[in-house]
Amino acid sequence: MKNMDRMTNACILIMEGTNCEEETKIAFEKVGINAELVHLKQLTGEVPRELKRDLFEYNILMIPGGWSAGDYIRAGAIFAARIKSRLMKEIEEFVEDGNVVGGICNGFQILIELGLLPGFDGISKEPEAALTTNLNARFQCRPVYLKHVGKCTFTEKIDEGKVLQVPVAHAEGRFTFGGEDEKYLNKLIENGQIVFRYCHPDGTPAEGEFPWNPNGSLYDIAGICNPEKNVLGMMPHPERVVEGIQHADWTRTHPSLGDGRIFFESIAEFMRGNSK
């Protein structure tokens, strides 16, 4: 990476309708990662020269949650189309260089629409999966339990099997392969691409049961990565629980940190270990 000191730089990509960028920035900064809010147009160059940014100045690209472009068409479809039209070559190169790309909630929907996830045979031209309307057709905004079932670059330092309590806030989070659920689910499992699954508080699988699985997601999938493990998308919001008082049970359990903190600590530790 050019023009870089050893500091890790995260690019938090925003456009009209993203709304979780501030807390995502704070979460990165709390673990010592430089984070900058960057509008899509700053990367595509449709801004005055002093505002232009180069994706390769960063080593983490994070797409935050929100309602980009009002969730019109399908959640994430318009943000993805805008990236495809102006920035796809850079993103492909960024991913192929082994940099890390993350998407939380709407960010996950965008990564699916972009074809970066599941990315069975590299980046696909058309989506290979879908995050569609929750089974009960309602917006779910509340804590859920997640089990960390497989490591990726982002979660390298989190123990496998660890259960985290993290909020979800989405209406379109049901992961599916449409009519080919079984075939592609096996592929995800074989490749070790499933990172988080919805579970009971004790870590046993939710098995599709509401409320533990908030959206009816296939195989309780809450987050997946690409086969190379450097692109992660997840529906729950770790950036919303980085402090103890943000934990849903904080008055009873007085945790010093929220369960989402370990997610960011893990990225920070991984990046420190990776910097030459």
Binding site: I73, K84, E126, P127, A130, T132, T176
Partner: peptide, 10 residues
């Protein structure tokens, strides 16, 4: 439709 309006998976 293939590029934006529909997700061919579903």
């Amino acid at each position: 439709c293939r590029r934006l309006l529909a997700n061919p998976v579903i």
